[in-house]
Design a protein around this nucleic acid. Structure first.
Ligand SMILES: [Mn+2]
Ligand SMILES: [Mn+2]
Ligand SMILES: [Mn+2]
Ligand SMILES: [Mn+2]
Lengths: 218, 218
DNA sequence: AATTATTTTTAGATTAATCTAAAAATTTTG
DNA sequence: CAAAATTTTTAGATTAATCTAAAAATAATT
């Protein structure tokens, strides 16, 4: 039985893993979990002893198959609870993360499987992220950043890269929600800001924001 | 912010409080929480420092107003989650307690108030126990043990004293569920066992079981 | 390649929650 | 009411999670 802290480390390592070969650095984990490097080093040793990661001094951490499966199970719980909060408890998508961080550690196979059924087996969380199945299989869809589109191209808003509460509220204010059709009307030379149409309104989006909006290209 | 352990101690003290004057003993708390007396003594000192209980050496613990309100808030969460598990996630009433013991520690005012609304503001949990309101007010109903009834008397099954999984399954097996009308047909002299009618079937109930069944007298 | 900068680990301390064994206080009993 | 039994507390140790400061290793730069 893993502690909350152990589970949080596994999840952080999963989210920070880009490359299969390159270990996730101690500092990046510390930053992600708002803790300090020595605490992470201790935890990496422990997770290595439990065969959830491979870890050699100064070489960062890599999830084992077992560790990866464990991480995906926690992410599954996190995302299912987020769906529950939005669909059933009328939370805004900007409010769910903090509570899901707590709920993801509840231990009960039956609970999460029944929750999944109750929610109608959702495949995406409120931020557009895929929900792993009970076996830890995750379905990726091809998506592209709004900032990578050219003038005249369009796509459907399917997810956010930055899911901070601040950014989500920013999107709410501009009525940009998952499923919106976005088309690039013009790209400003001076500051790379984008003039886009969303539904039947036009607005300007900064490069920084465009860099956090995922689209499914059409 | 209280730890799980602190919250569990407050809840135990609440459940073990009979008398307003008599402090709850260290050993009874230890037994209730499956821990040892020295651990409890340490925790009592801490809770006293936080003004959640009054505690004088060798005199047991008494909840302060603040402590009582905190305990009732945890109990409110526990019981609302139990309702959720039974009503929405198809748990049996014998399966919910363990999971609710975890869920009751999730910290989010909004979560619990929205859950309450989602469930339709229930007043009782699946075992017939009352759900405190957000202010910590709890509504008691008069009820009597089946074992206290005399021949010919009857009542509605409204709660259990022993809510162990074993007893709840025992009741399931005999199709005795909350709301059943129970009438005492005969009391056996030899072993005090009860012949009762439940709905349209008759059966025999031991004194030990009758001592754990609450009825609303009719 | 040597120096400097950065990252990571080790060393050592702290706080919380737990335990066993022993001492102290209270309660029960003859 | 004194002795015995029970309960409670204290003393001291252990494990987990955390931190700061210092040492060691690695990476980047002249
Ligand atoms: Mn989240
Ligand atoms: Mn999410
Ligand atoms: Mn319960
Ligand atoms: Mn209950």
């Amino acid at each position: 039985m893993l502690s909350h802290t152990e589970e949080n480390h596994l999840k952080a390592i999963f989210h920070l893993s880009k490359d299969q070969n390159e270990g996730v650095s101690t500092n990046s984990i510390a930053q992600n979990l708002k803790t300090k490097a020595p605490s992470v080093t201790d935890m990496l040793k422990k997770l290595c002893d439990k065969n959830l990661i491979t870890y050699k001094k100064y070489q960062g951490a890599l999830l084992t198959d077992d560790g990866r499966k464990t991480a995906l199970n926690i992410i599954r719980k996190h995302r299912l609870w987020e769906v529950f909060l939005v669909e059933k408890l009328e939370f805004n998508w900007s409010e769910v993360h903090e509570v899901a961080e707590q709920l993801e550690h509840i231990k009960s196979k039956k609970l999460i499987n029944e929750l999944d059924r109750f929610l109608g087996y959702p495949t995406k969380d409120p931020h557009g992220d895929p929900i792993p199945n009970p076996a830890g299989f995750i379905k990726h869809t091809t998506k592209v950043l709004l900032s990578d589109l050219k003038k005249g191209e369009k796509g459907t808003f399917v997810g956010v890269k930055d899911s901070s509460s601040a950014f989500l509220k920013f999107l709410d204010k501009r009525k940009i929600s998952l499923g919106s059709l976005i088309e690039i009307l013009h790209i400003e030379d001076f500051d790379d800001s984008l003039h886009v149409s969303i539904g039947n309104t036009n607005l300007t989006i900064s490069m920084k924001s465009a860099n956090n909006i995922y689209l499914k290209k059409q």
